[in-house]
Design a protein around this nucleic acid. Structure first.
Lengths: 331, 331
DNA sequence: CTGAAAGCGCTTACAG
DNA sequence: CTGAAAGCGCTTACAG
């Protein structure tokens, strides 16, 4: 029997008689045969590996990152791909290396900044790329992100509907914005607009990303705005710190203060957070990015199919931390 | 010029005249040449990739896992290796696939259980493996783990030295033990022995891994043992939940209760934990595993070098949560 | 339905 | 110090 026949019998890329196929499979099983990945990659120009470019930032909370990883690795495996993980601080360099060497068939970029310096490298690469996070310029890549504008609107409108008239929005620290985290602005601007439209007073502030600073920030805010009856958190550290702050001030939620955060359900569980939140869906974003990337790799996208920019609709997970303001609120 | 000369000029595996080397490098730079990874792997039988077999368990806390990942990826990169990440729930299957196909030159196993079902596959593989976590049988692999026995002793002896006579040890939940987390026993048994030796009463219990159960567990324990003046936590969920429990009971640490945990500094920061702890050093363990693995891969271990089982010495990070018991303690 | 051959892009003995 | 060739282990047109 020819090598080629054996190959066809195993890959199924050509019809093979039942008898031959059975014999080949039997032999493969007995010998424990597994194709050599390097040789196959060389012959097919396909590695069946997806590059995952993450950055483990010190002020980023681990649960969200792990959920991205989980969504990406699980989906890739389901679709027949392995994951090459890079957390190199030199993102562009790492990206160039793994694409130029053809180690990967495509690439998922996590934590994409507004002017991400990995994007020029990605556009110059031969492989397709999918992003989690919205850059200024989306040409040539598929983009997935939470709809932060809708999230900002939804938070404000939810509380306005309940009758709140003065709210506080705590955003991520300014240095997150400075390194390109435009989602902070996207949420905040939309919240400000929605507040204006509803005639609601909205105080906005950048909070710290770590304890004990964020605790102090929260205390100062509550001191400064005694009339505020609702708190919006686009800052995971603030959400994690809030239970302690409220307890020490003897503030009950939602009786005295309505609270809405923006984080994943997994995050809420990790920190036992009792606050309703806009689900940030990291696992879902990772899953969507890989799905689309694989479609590109395998040319399942209709020719000339335009690149997509897809926003995940923010779902409000109700944990009972919002209610109509009472006359007793925050006095 | 021959292809071979260009290859030698780039890899430096053979002497090449200065002039030729310069020309080759120049050309490579201009053309943006990067060797094809698959072809190189086929020719050298080396992929320069390390497989990382993690499992994202639902009751595992994300910060520790991320620190392992960070230690492993950073060290691998420093040594010239990329990381193939698998979080496949079918660990043995994934391991067999990536080793048989020669995608990886070696493998790091995280979260190794006492009778880990990945170990037979690893021993049958052609590539070396390094473990984080201590299995019953260490033959044929390099093993790295925290010295949990010393950790158990150190916790008890530290508090005994301060004059405590009745302690509580909260371990991980029983199902962690059941899936092979023998470190729970290792710490607990050593703690029990040390307590006996010092004439200290030690109550041991398995705590839940999630809120609100673990909070209830802690309340019940403090109710059941009103004479206990020290709390030892080999359970990250318990550590995260403790501040709330103590506050609601108006217990101050260390004035009313001394507390020592076992978790990483990063974990302490994530949850703003004020308790002294035995550092579990996940990043360091990841780093050690990769270092030794690369030495094996590159045959830098003296021939016949025995496999190592190395325990990281537990360091007590003092956050001021232990003190001598006062007459006022816990009454 | 099957075989014989070429070729993927490197590295590395073998010659000189 | 350099060249010409073989070979790594697959896949896939090309023939039949």
């Amino acid at each position: 029997m020819a090598r080629s026949t054996a190959s066809y019998a195993l890959t199924g890329k050509r019809a093979v008689s039942d008898e031959v196929r059975a014999r080949v499979r039997q032999a493969a099983l007995e010998l424990g045969y597994t194709p050599n990945a390097g040789a196959r990659a060389l012959a097919t120009s396909r590695s069946n590996v997806i590059g995952l470019l993450a950055q483990f930032l010190p002020d980023e909370f681990a649960p969200a990152m792990l959920q991205y990883l989980q969504g990406v690795t699980d989906t890739a495996r389901d679709l027949g791909y392995d994951i090459l993980l890079s957390s190199d601080s030199d993102g562009p360099g790492a990206l160039k290396r793994i694409t130029d060497s053809r180690m990967v068939d495509g690439v998922v970029l996590l934590n994409v900044a507004e002017d991400d310096d990995r994007l020029p490298v990605l556009r110059a690469a031969a492989q397709p790329g999918a992003l989690v996070g919205l850059p200024r310029d989306c040409t040539g890549v598929d983009v997935f992100d939470l709809d932060f504008e809708e999230a900002g609107r939804a938070m404000v409108e939810h509380l306005a509907r309940l009758g709140h008239r003065e709210l506080i929005l705590v955003s991520q620290p300014e240095h997150v914005v400075e390194r390109g985290g435009a989602y902070v602005w996207r949420l905040q601007n939309a919240a400000v607009q929605a507040a204006a439209a509803k005639g609601v007073v909205l105080h906005t502030v950048f909070g710290a990303a770590t304890q004990p600073d964020i605790g102090r920030d929260l205390h100062a805010l509550l001191d400064a705005h005694p009339g505020a009856t609702g708190l919006l958190l686009n800052n995971e550290a603030a959400a994690a710190a809030l239970p302690t702050v409220l307890r020490s001030r003897d503030i009950e939620s939602p009786a005295d203060l309505s609270v809405i955060g923006r984080y994943s359900d997994e995050f809420a569980r990790t920190f036992s957070l009792p606050y309703s939140s806009i689900e940030s869906a990291p696992d879902r974003l990772g899953r969507m990015a890989v799905r689309q990337l694989v479609r590109r790799i395998e040319n399942q996208v209709p020719d000339g199919d335009p690149y997509v920019v897809r926003f995940v609709h923010p779902e409000l997970v109700d944990r009972g931390s919002t209610a109509a303001p009472t006359s007793a609120s925050r006095q």
